[in-house]
């Protein structure tokens, strides 16, 4: 049995559980639409930082995609805490299956989920007035998926370390919220005062947001995109590497 088969077995198990949860399916799929329907209309009446007019969706939708990825992947580890209690984690750890497969099978289920939500969100934004560069939008979703992979893996490992929802939830909130706010997800950082912009420059997410926005605009062969893609891949590799190492050690 190869690591690919093992990853697949875990992935399918997680996906089955997700799809069988009607509450999740409903809210998971309507959430992107809610953002567009309830927050999107506000964009029409602001101007500045490139906002206002039909182009504002090219700024707003990439932000939503990032937010989707950060929260979706950030809270991925929630489920493994329950699995610990049920004994699912132990029963899988006591098999010869690769530890990497145990965490990657789970992570891939989040990546696929976030990918589907991202595609849905982008498509739903069209009637609202989104006219992106389609090649760029496609690459954007790939970037979102890569980021989700690293973050979800890290989230699972944090779940195993903290072992308790009551510390896990505030931890994830505490980490993701400042990261999001300081990346210009909601409004572009060009609107920020200088000190805030400086802080945001050390936030890797800023580069991801900039990249996704550039891609939506169609500046595919730009320095921004090159830099952002490198940062995304780098961050994802770093997180996934840390996560699998810790996971392995926690479950030696």
């Amino acid at each position: 049995m190869t690591i690919v088969t093992e990853t697949w077995v875990i992935f399918i198990r997680q996906m089955r559980q997700l799809v069988r949860n009607p509450v999740w399916v409903f809210f998971g799929l309507t959430q992107p639409i809610l953002y567009l329907a309830l927050f999107g209309p506000l964009l029409k009446n602001i101007s500045g930082g490139g906002l206002g007019g039909s182009d504002s969706y090219k700024i707003f939708v990439p932000g939503l995609l990032l937010q989707l990825a950060i929260f979706g992947a950030g809270f991925a580890g929630f489920g493994i805490i329950q699995e610990l209690r049920e004994g699912v984690v132990d029963r899988q750890r006591v098999t010869p299956a690769s530890r990497l497969a145990l965490i990657m099978g789970r992570t891939m289920s989040n990546v696929v989920t976030i990918g589907v939500q991202a595609i849905l969100l982008t498509l739903v934004a069209i009637p609202f007035g989104l006219r992106p560069n389609w090649g760029g939008a496609f690459v954007s979703i790939a970037v979102i998926c890569v980021l989700s992979l690293g973050m979800a893996a890290a989230s699972y490992t944090m779940g195993l370390i903290l072992r308790d929802e009551d510390s896990f939830a505030p931890f994830v909130q505490g980490v993701t919220l400042p990261l999001l706010l300081l990346s210009g997800v909601l409004l572009p950082m060009t609107l920020a005062p200088t000190w805030l912009r400086r802080v945001s420059q050390v936030n890797p997410l800023s580069y991801v947001v900039d990249t996704v926005r550039a891609l939506f605009r169609g500046d595919i062969a730009s320095v921004t995109v090159a830099k952002g893609s490198l940062v995304t891949v780098g961050v994802a590799i770093l997180l996934a590497w840390w996560a699998t190492r810790r996971f392995q050690r926690n479950s030696a």
């Binding site: 198990r13 049920e86 098999t95």
Partner: peptide, 22 residues
């Protein structure tokens, strides 16, 4: 252990386990 989450079925879980065992 704790009560399993909804959505896990006996046959599938056992087959998943066997497959992880190789």
């Amino acid at each position: 252990g704790a009560v399993p989450a909804p959505g896990t079925r006996l046959g599938e879980e056992l087959i998943t386990q066997a497959r992880l065992q190789g």
